[in-house]
Amino acid sequence: MKDVAVLGVGMTPFVAKTEVSLREQAYRAGRAALDDAGVGFPRVGSVYMGYLWEPTMTGVRFLKEFGLTGVHVQHVQNASATGSAALLEAVRAVAGGHSEIAMAIGFDDMQRINGAGFSNESAEGVILPAAFFALWAQERMLTYGTTPATLAAIAAKNWNNAARNPMAQRRPTTAVTAEKVLASKMIADPLTSMMAAGVGQGAAAVIVGSAELARKLHPDRPPVLVAASTMQSESYTPYHLFVGPVIGPSGMTRTTAEVAYNQAGLGPDDLDLVQVHDAFPIEELVYYEKLGLCPEGEGDKLVAENATGLGGRIPVSTDGGLIGRGHPGGPTGLAQIWETTLQLRGEAGERQVPDAKVGLCHMVGGGSVCVVHILRRGS
């Protein structure tokens, strides 16, 4: 198995609406990643196209914009974790020696969502995601005394982080306060509209290759190494409920992270920044604990101490997360890699985490799969 590095990253701004076609957005993101890597498309041996809401062969059609090279191409689909899953396949293609260079590219317009495949005979076909997460939040409030103000503080942090990200969908021109978040329209008690992920469109791409190649292509730039790339689905537990894949068992994040930490030879204390699946702030709060950033039940304390804000002990969702940066679907997980790669290179501008060396990216797909990547800065 070869050591794998991120050779290049690219993305388009995530937006609610644009005149630029999705095909053009995908091309721009892929072209930016190739340029950042310093390689031409003919050198790419494998491409994994992640998207949810377009017809099956859309990825192959879009890929023709880069050239007809006979490249191996696959469509990857895994709900919100689609982009992350596409990257996992690209990493494995390089690590296993199947391709010298591989590309993961995601694109989508979440406003074209046409259902998640659930019938009205199941709970998932009737209850919207916001309601599932609201129930999760209500349980948390009863168990640990979490307040809506804590959830609002997380959302406000992410809105304000997004203001510093030129690719973010939501870029407020004045500071967002927890009070403003709480005052926004209630959608599922205790979750308000400003606590919900931004729904829009966009594209993102990541090029991976060997660590040796990364050093050859960019000798003056620190290589960003893929220290861990792993995915897990649900494991059976006593009293397991076979409903609710929108959120799934929160323990799935813990077990996937444990595999990733073991794979990387690192632990939570080694992390300098984290990106999580934060479709609603209750997720981010719970994932603080499941990823080992703090003991169980102490996530609220991290928020109160601003430990997860820029300048805090362990910044989370530095680019605004799903709430601020936006959540088009297919490219979301790859946008996390874009952000973390820039952070580890020291190229994140005004949201830069000082001397960032290790970053973790976490996405959950449909509540039934979890993908965790750990990136680290090489020498």
Rank of each mutant, 00 (worst) to 15 (best):
G321C: 03
V47L: 10
M141P: 05
N114Q: 13
V358G: 08
H327Y: 06
Q77I: 03
S250A: 15
F41Y: 15
G38E: 06
Y287L: 15
D300E: 15
G326P: 03
G365C: 09
Q336T: 11
V226C: 13
A279H: 02
P129C: 07
R325E: 07
A168G: 03
V226D: 12
A196F: 02
V259H: 01
K290T: 15
K216R: 15
R140F: 00
V226Y: 08
T56P: 00
H240I: 15
E347W: 04
R164A: 11
S379V: 10
A85Y: 00
Y288M: 11
I323H: 01
Q343H: 10
A211H: 04
V316C: 07
F242S: 14
A304C: 03
V47Y: 06
G265C: 12
G320M: 02
G366M: 11
Y51P: 12
E296C: 09
T177Q: 06
R254F: 00
L241R: 15
T146W: 01
R164F: 01
D319C: 09
F14G: 04
R140M: 14
T237G: 10
G333D: 09
A204E: 09
P315G: 04
R377N: 07
A163K: 02
P219N: 09
H277N: 14
S368M: 13
E284V: 03
A335C: 13
A197C: 14
H373Y: 06
G324W: 00
T177Y: 03
V208I: 04
S210Y: 01
D3Y: 00
V303I: 05
E179F: 03
A257K: 09
R254G: 08
L34I: 08
A203R: 06
Y48S: 02
G251F: 00
M11Q: 15
T332F: 06
A79Q: 12
G378I: 08
Q352T: 07
A307R: 02
A260K: 12
G267M: 14
T69R: 08
T237M: 13
Q77H: 04
G365E: 10
V44L: 06
G125W: 10
G115T: 11
G333Y: 11
V91D: 04
E100N: 05
G145S: 08
A153I: 01
Q111N: 15
Y287S: 13
G326A: 04
A86S: 13
